[in-house]
Design a protein around this nucleic acid. Structure first.
Length: 328
DNA sequence: AATCGGAACAACCGCGGATCT
DNA sequence: AAGATCCGCGGTTGTTCCGAT
């Protein structure tokens, strides 16, 4: 009955992934695409459970991931979406192309929470801390975290779209849900234009003071890197200290390899909406440049591309440890 | 230079809904 | 229809990094 167990947990490796394991997983998925994760470890020759492989891929190895700190705008988006959705990190992540739920969750817990508290805003209720305290005292049994939108809807005698029960009862709400989740922030430039419409009044009023110091802000242009840009600014860095860190290499695999690779629609949309800013096909020069990068970078430090010929394309920051696997 | 503590982040764990046999 | 398993999500933990002393 039922399916085979995903893995027998005996003898499975845990803990940090090694470069060799990453290589195996990347090569396997590049060759076979994302199929059933249960089979991946066996077929890829990994002593990991499928779940671990999936996490590693989705949170770290996926080529369409952005690396580095969230931009100011992304932070605003996270806060605003959190006010509406609560701790539904995957939903929030779905609005931020290239960001994972895990990444956003971590960023929330380590950065945004503190900033909000510093500003006198309760990160749970998204209200002024004094108001939140009063309410907590008045209603001690209230749910600790009720998204702002939900609260507003309840005040209006409405249910929140996201409520599964409500959805089940009201099929047409699916459309609303769809529209809501397809709220595609496909490019930071586009996002910036919509910013005013998206922000809730509360955050609209406070954001002028938000995120102006403490954390170096990555400009939107540095994240999506317009193809025509010839910026030689060396300011783009990766915040990650991990041994496997790649930045701004969104469609690396797609453009180089595997026509049958499973690329998300979101991502493809991103490319298109980005005003043709992405390179459709990498030419030989670019690939050669990457090879140089990879081969140059023997000490594991990430390198920046300043060569003008390369700067015609999205800048790619990689370390050889993870990427010099002979993928090219 | 060594040590300590906090910050940051990758990875794990457990749960619940979806899916398959 | 029932049970077993898969998959994804959110919470938590463990490890590494980095600045202060």
């Amino acid at each position: 009955m039922g399916r085979q167990p995903c893995c027998d947990k005996v003898g499975l490796k845990k803990g940090p992934w090694t470069a060799e394991e990453d290589k195996k997983l990347i090569n396997f998925i590049l060759t076979n695409g994302q199929c059933c994760w249960r089979a991946v470890p066996k077929l890829a020759g990994l002593l990991r459970c499928g779940k671990s492989c999936r996490l590693r891929w989705t949170n770290y190895l996926r080529p369409d991931l952005k690396r580095g700190l969230l931009s100011e705008y992304e932070e605003k988006m996270v806060i605003d979406l959190h006010a509406q959705l609560g701790n539904r990190w995957s939903k929030i992540a779905s609005h931020l192309p290239g960001r994972t739920d895990n990444e956003i969750k971590n960023h929330w817990n380590t950065h945004i929470k503190k900033k909000l508290k510093k500003m006198g805003i309760d990160p749970v209720t998204h209200k002024s801390l004094s108001i939140a305290t009063e309410q907590t005292q008045a209603q001690p049994d209230e749910q600790p975290h009720q998204p702002l939108q939900e609260q507003q809807h309840q005040q209006q005698g409405l249910q929140v779209e996201e409520d599964p029960k409500f959805e089940a009862e009201n099929g047409q709400n699916k459309e609303a849900e769809k529209a809501e989740t397809s709220f595609d922030l496909s490019s930071i430039t586009e996002e910036a234009k919509e910013e005013d419409q998206i922000m809730t009044p509360l955050f609209d009023s406070i954001m002028n003071e938000f995120c102006t110091d403490e954390v170096p802000i990555i400009e939107a242009s540095e994240i999506l890197v317009p193809s025509g840009a010839t910026s030689t600014s060396p300011t783009t860095t990766s915040s990650s200290t991990s041994s496997s860190c790649y930045s701004n290499s969104p469609n690396l695999f797609e453009d180089l390899l595997l026509p049958d690779f499973d690329w998300s629609d979101d991502y493809n949309d991103t490319k298109i909406d980005n005003n043709n800013s992405s390179v459709a096909l990498w030419d030989d020069d670019l690939i050669r440049s990457w090879n140089l990068l990879l081969n140059d970078d023997c000490d594991g430090d990430r390198k920046q591309v300043f060569d003008t010929s390369v700067n015609q394309y999205p800048r790619v920051i990689m370390d050889s440890e993870s990427w010099a696997y002979g993928l090219f």
